[in-house]
């Protein structure tokens, strides 16, 4: 299960809406081993695309260094799908590289409602999990 504070949840939704129709992406860092997503970090989508995302490599290094210094890890890795449902694509599954992260997908295909769902992706296996907003 993903437990996430409302303010963080809403920051993900707001980022997804702001970058629509391009995919938005980012992380929520938290203390290593805590499973608590606390520090929201919006990342640039280096692909600037409605169908792909990729963290800018230099920005990623900076953000990962800060996490290292603070003894944090990426508890949540999020991105948006802007025309399809909030379910990991084959591309998402094959590129998932953080077995400890919650992969959060936000779909902005419906202008009125943002669908947000969370998954574990380990060795190509996708497991959906409940999202509890606290």
């Amino acid at each position: 299960m993903l437990r996430i504070e409302r303010a963080v949840y809403e920051a993900i939704v707001a980022h997804a809406r702001r970058d629509h129709p391009d995919e938005a992406c980012g992380i929520v860092a938290g203390p290593a081993g805590s499973d608590r997503p606390e520090r929201f970090v919006a990342m640039r989508n280096a692909e600037r695309s409605p169908t792909f995302y990729r963290f800018d490599s230099i920005e990623q290094l900076k953000v990962w260094r800060v996490m290292d210094d603070r003894d944090e890890e990426p508890v949540v890795i999020y991105h948006s799908h802007t025309a399809t449902e909030a379910y990991p694509s084959r591309t998402d599954i094959s590129l998932a590289s953080e077995p400890n992260a919650h992969y959060v997908l936000a779909s902005t295909r419906d202008p009125e409602h943002t669908e947000v769902r969370s998954y574990r992706i380990v060795d190509g296996a996708v497991t959906e999990e409940p999202v509890e907003i606290v």
Partner: peptide
Amino acid sequence: ITILPAVAGGSTDDRAAFGRLAGR
């Protein structure tokens, strides 16, 4: 030296398009 897995993906399952992403 720092090694980091790229964080990437996207909504498409289109193979040709995926190849373009991979080609970066």
